[in-house]
Amino acid sequence: MTFPLRIGTRRSRLALAQSGMMQRAIGRALGVPESEIADAVPLVEIVTTGDRIQDRRLLELGGKALFTKEIEEALLDGRIDIAVHSMKDVPAEQPPGLCVAATPEREDARDAFISRDHAAFDDLPTGARLGTASLRRQAQALALRPDLKIEMLRGNIDTRLRRAAEGEFDAILLAVSGMTRLGVTDAIREKLSLDAFLPAPGQGALALQTREADMHAPWVAALNHPETAMAVEAERGAMLTLEGSCRTAVGAHAVIANGVLRLTTEMLSPDGSGRWRRTGDLPAPNPDSARALGLRLGEEVRDAAGDQEVDLATLDG
């Protein structure tokens, strides 16, 4: 292995925390002394388009690939050797020449309910202001509570928590995984059920992306968690069929128990009035069969739902 092994990362506090975790894990897997890891496996900070523009929904800007595009370009250009992404930000199809080489063990995939004045989602008063920029969370919340007023909320986790604490919103929704990695779980009032708030495909998981030539690098096997990778393959298969981006409200979550993979995926209308869901089981899964299950269930949901892509003109903010 040739050092330095450069890791590309966004500059947000969460991205740096996640990349720092992977930096240490890769260094240890390669036998690098703790005191030398920062030099042998340095972090290269990259500002993405999604980070620069904070006043609009991602779907207005072109979708979640805006958080990965500049980092992927650095990988293809040879300026970095590994990219660390939140899996839910990674488009369903990889750019030519790149691959997700390893998927570490997933953190809690649930959504978190945060509120200054209310202990649980069900306690929100009629007409409460719910802050989120996620079309999926918007649709799921409105499916349960059509009376809620959805208000656009972007920015890093610290900014969102501050705005919630100052009472700008009656509640906000965030990913439990990000809050856990940042050590700010004290702000969580309720961890929402996986049934009511089916997560985004890949939520809670990280993607370690490399050039295809490096997909079998010495550190890969040590960091890849086969069950998480298989579950994510199923979820991303569904996402691919459903064109899961910021322009469609899509959820997918897979778990493996007793050798059986169970995938649930759904699509919702943006206002929550329609919800189409399918669940399927797969004994003795492998990555190919897991992805095939996701593709099949995604097709069934898509056929049932029809065209649910958002008309940008109907959205505020």
Score class of each variant (00 low, 15 high):
residue 267 M to K: 09
residue 193 S to G: 14
residue 128 A to V: 05
residue 69 K to E: 13
residue 4 P to A: 12
residue 252 A to G: 07
residue 217 A to S: 15
residue 241 T to D: 02
residue 271 D to S: 12
residue 224 N to M: 06
residue 150 I to F: 09
residue 40 A to R: 15
residue 70 E to W: 04
residue 289 S to F: 06
residue 308 Q to W: 10
residue 155 G to I: 07
residue 136 R to H: 12
residue 4 P to Y: 09
residue 54 Q to M: 08
residue 35 S to C: 03
residue 112 A to V: 04
residue 228 T to M: 08
residue 266 E to G: 07
residue 181 R to Q: 15
residue 214 D to T: 11
residue 122 D to M: 07
residue 281 D to Y: 06
residue 312 L to T: 02
residue 43 L to R: 01
residue 47 V to H: 00
residue 289 S to T: 15
residue 114 I to V: 13
residue 169 F to Q: 00
residue 244 G to L: 06
residue 266 E to R: 14
residue 49 T to M: 05
residue 110 R to P: 07
residue 313 A to W: 01
residue 182 L to H: 04
residue 56 R to N: 01
residue 137 R to T: 12
residue 125 P to T: 09
residue 135 L to E: 05
residue 99 C to M: 12
residue 131 G to N: 02
residue 50 G to D: 03
residue 256 I to P: 06
residue 80 I to M: 08
residue 105 E to D: 02
residue 248 T to S: 13
residue 286 N to V: 10
residue 179 M to V: 03
residue 280 G to A: 12
residue 191 K to W: 01
residue 132 T to Q: 04
residue 246 C to V: 01
residue 54 Q to R: 13
residue 260 V to T: 15
residue 129 R to F: 05
residue 136 R to S: 10
residue 129 R to C: 01
residue 37 I to F: 04
residue 53 I to E: 12
residue 278 R to I: 03
residue 82 I to P: 02
residue 94 Q to S: 14
residue 151 E to W: 00
residue 252 A to S: 12
residue 152 M to E: 06
residue 102 A to I: 08
residue 84 V to I: 14
residue 111 D to A: 15
residue 119 A to H: 10
residue 45 E to C: 09
residue 223 L to R: 02
residue 210 T to N: 08
residue 266 E to Y: 06
residue 197 F to M: 06
residue 38 A to S: 15
residue 314 T to N: 05
residue 65 A to R: 12
residue 234 A to R: 02
residue 13 R to P: 06
residue 159 T to I: 11
residue 248 T to V: 14
residue 127 G to V: 04
residue 77 D to P: 00
residue 303 D to G: 10
residue 267 M to I: 14
residue 85 H to S: 05
residue 71 I to E: 02
residue 244 G to E: 03
residue 249 A to I: 03
residue 299 E to V: 00
residue 81 D to M: 02
residue 130 L to I: 08
residue 5 L to R: 05
residue 244 G to N: 08
residue 299 E to Y: 00
residue 8 G to P: 04
residue 86 S to R: 09
residue 39 D to G: 13
residue 139 A to R: 04
residue 205 A to H: 06
residue 182 L to P: 02
residue 112 A to W: 01
residue 165 A to Q: 13
residue 64 K to M: 11
residue 289 S to W: 07
residue 197 F to V: 08
residue 200 A to I: 01
residue 99 C to W: 05
residue 310 V to Y: 04
residue 80 I to L: 10
residue 273 S to G: 14
residue 34 E to D: 15
residue 66 L to H: 11
residue 200 A to P: 00
residue 246 C to N: 14
residue 108 D to N: 15
residue 193 S to K: 11
residue 176 V to T: 11
residue 135 L to W: 04
residue 54 Q to V: 09
residue 161 L to Q: 08
residue 279 T to R: 13
residue 47 V to Y: 00
residue 47 V to E: 13
residue 15 A to V: 03
residue 12 S to K: 07
residue 20 G to R: 09
residue 83 A to V: 07
residue 77 D to W: 09
residue 228 T to G: 10
residue 75 L to D: 03
residue 163 R to P: 05
